[in-house]
Lab assay of single mutants.
Amino acid sequence: MTDQQAEARSYLSEEMIAEFKAAFDMFDADGGGDISVKELGTVMRMLGQTPTKEELDAIIEEVDEDGSGTIDFEEFLVMMVRQ
């Protein structure tokens, strides 16, 4: 866990972390443990947004600390705390 990830967790109660985990699992449609650009786009479109591929890439790049091209749960928490 990076310093950013530990800091993000410090702002959240266990209840909030559990709620974010449920949301993360909804995004992680294939159950792979991370959110891909495609999965992020699908959920955002379900919520009425129309992000471009470039916008989706930028969202993932902003929090993808390990350079995997996807968002894992710890990175997702950082993203949610920043919102």
Rank of each mutant, 00 (worst) to 15 (best):
M1V: 10
T2F: 02
T2P: 01
T2H: 04
D3H: 06
D3V: 11
D3P: 13
Q4L: 08
Q4A: 05
Q4N: 14
A6F: 14
A6G: 13
A6Q: 09
E7S: 08
E7H: 04
A8N: 04
A8C: 00
A8W: 10
A8I: 11
R9W: 05
R9C: 05
S10R: 09
Y11N: 10
Y11I: 03
Y11W: 07
L12E: 02
L12C: 03
L12P: 11
L12Y: 07
S13G: 10
S13M: 01
E14Q: 07
E14P: 14
E15Y: 01
M16E: 14
M16G: 05
I17V: 08
E19Y: 07
E19F: 00
F20C: 03
F20T: 04
F20R: 00
A22Y: 02
A23S: 08
A23N: 03
A23M: 06
A23Q: 03
F24T: 00
F24H: 00
F24L: 00
F24E: 01
F24G: 00
D25V: 06
D25G: 05
M26G: 11
F27P: 01
F27G: 07
F27R: 07
F27V: 08
F27S: 09
F27A: 09
A29T: 12
A29F: 00
D30G: 11
G31A: 13
G31M: 03
G32T: 14
G32M: 02
G32E: 12
G32H: 13
G32K: 03
G33D: 02
G33L: 02
G33Y: 02
D34E: 08
D34G: 11
D34F: 05
D34L: 14
D34R: 12
D34K: 15
I35Q: 00
I35R: 01
S36E: 12
S36R: 07
S36Q: 09
V37E: 02
K38T: 13
K38C: 12
K38G: 12
E39D: 05
E39W: 06
L40G: 01
L40Q: 00
G41K: 09
G41S: 11
G41M: 12
V43S: 01
V43T: 02
M44G: 01
R45P: 01
R45T: 09
R45G: 14
L47N: 03
L47E: 01
G48R: 06
Q49A: 15
Q49G: 11
Q49L: 09
Q49N: 05
Q49F: 14
T50A: 01
P51A: 09
P51T: 09
P51D: 03
T52L: 05
E54G: 02
E55H: 07
E55S: 06
L56G: 01
L56I: 15
D57P: 04
A58W: 05
I59T: 02
I59P: 01
I59R: 06
I60A: 08
I60E: 12
I60Y: 12
D64V: 11
D64F: 04
D64G: 11
E65M: 13
E65D: 10
E65N: 15
E65V: 12
E65R: 12
D66H: 14
G67W: 06
G67I: 03
G67C: 07
S68C: 15
G69C: 03
G69A: 06
G69S: 10
G69Q: 12
G69D: 08
T70H: 12
T70G: 04
T70S: 11
I71M: 11
I71A: 02
I71T: 02
D72P: 10
F73I: 01
F73R: 03
E74N: 11
E74Y: 08
E75N: 15
F76R: 00
F76E: 01
F76Q: 00
L77I: 07
L77V: 12
V78S: 14
V78W: 07
V78L: 13
M79F: 12
M80T: 04
V81G: 10
R82L: 07
R82H: 10
R82K: 14
